[in-house]
């Protein structure tokens, strides 16, 4: 294959890998900007992936699957909210607990309901999955010279969730920086006492942030099991929730830089899949493990202050009480 084709296909893969990452990172963006550490991303996504695949398999409708995924994401977000906001519990513990419970519960339910060893049935019917949207002339363009393949693979050729995720970046930025809700949300992550004293209930705001996070995780999970794959398998998120958090930190808790971080991480992931055993000009054969570890290495370097300082929201992780 010529280099041009390789690069275009690599970038197309990057976009597909980046989508769930981006959705989860934006989910984390809302809850963390409101001051709640979101270690439950992984669990919410996994639970949603299971719900989407299970409902889609049973009903035959990908949309009902999506609805179930969102409902699951929101329900798990409410559990975290109840523990962390209403009862001021430890946010790290609550998020981890949800993740651990879901990673055990989802395969168990799958086994009980479908008897396929912790998976859901394969989604073979087109109505059970999100498939690529038909773009005008995409197939014809594929055969054409230079920009043709780029049009077919990068712009066209994705399912609706990919475009939704892309649209959510400017939308999140707008909500965060241009609306009253966004202003309050950012304020509550910085100094909840100021928000309370301004006459705005802190807990209500934080619950709303978690609800948004739940919805976005729901979409991310549905993407994993009903768009990128054709069914749910055990632990199918493989740490994407944590990677999304890393991207969020890398992006300094801002929507657009977070998008770039997600694309960078997704690129290393897509490249790793294609670089197995390929010798690079200077480095020789790079171990795949190294490339897979790259996003985490980048994050550690960032946190160690090499790439510039990331300042988290000031009240992140601090339960809100009226006491000193």
């Amino acid at each position: 294959m010529e280099t041009y084709t390789i690069i275009v296909l690599l970038l197309a893969a990057t976009i597909r890998v980046a989508t769930p990452l981006l959705l989860a990172a934006l989910a984390g963006l809302f809850s963390e900007r409101a001051g709640v550490i979101d270690l439950g991303l992984e669990g919410k996504m996994l639970g949603a992936a299971f719900a989407a695949a299970a409902v889609s398999a049973v009903t035959g409708s990908v949309w009902l699957g999506l609805g179930a995924a969102i409902a699951t994401g929101v329900a798990l977000a409410l559990v975290i909210g109840f523990a962390c906001i209403t009862h001021r519990g430890n946010q790290v513990v609550a998020g981890m607990a949800v993740t651990i419970v879901v990673s055990g519960l989802a395969p168990s339910l799958a086994l009980a309901w479908f008897g396929l060893g912790g998976q859901t049935p394969q989604l073979t019917n087109a109505a059970q999955r999100f498939t690529a949207l038909p773009w005008p002339g995409a197939e014809a363009a594929r055969a054409m010279p230079f920009p043709g393949l780029m049009y077919a693979e990068l712009l066209a050729g994705h399912n609706g969730v990919v475009y939704l995720a892309a649209a959510l970046v400017p939308l999140s930025a707008w909500v965060l920086y241009r609306t009253r809700f966004g202003l309050r949300l950012r304020a509550v992550g910085e100094n909840p006492h100021a928000v309370e004293s301004a006459g705005i209930p802190v807990n209500g705001l934080r619950y709303r942030a978690l609800l948004i996070s739940g919805v976005l995780c729901g979409v991310a999970g549905a993407y994993l099991s009903t768009a990128a794959n054709a069914g749910f398998v055990r632990d199918m998120t493989v740490g994407k929730g944590y990677l999304a958090l890393a991207a969020l930190i890398f992006g300094k808790w801002r929507p657009v830089p977070t998008l770039w971080a997600c694309l960078l991480f997704a690129f290393t992931d897509a490249a790793a899949a294609r670089m197995q055993g390929v010798a690079l000009p200077l480095a020789g054969v790079v171990p795949v493990q190294f490339i897979l570890a790259l996003p985490y290495i980048l994050t550690v370097l960032l946190l160690a202050g090499f790439v510039g300082r990331a300042t988290p929201p000031k009240a992140l992780g601090v339960p809100y009480t009226t006491e000193k």
Partner: peptide, 13 residues
């Protein structure tokens, strides 16, 4: 006050 907000943003809050 939210220290990393501008004065106006604090007022808008």
């Amino acid at each position: 006050l939210v220290e990393n907000f501008t004065a106006l943003e604090n007022l808008l809050l």
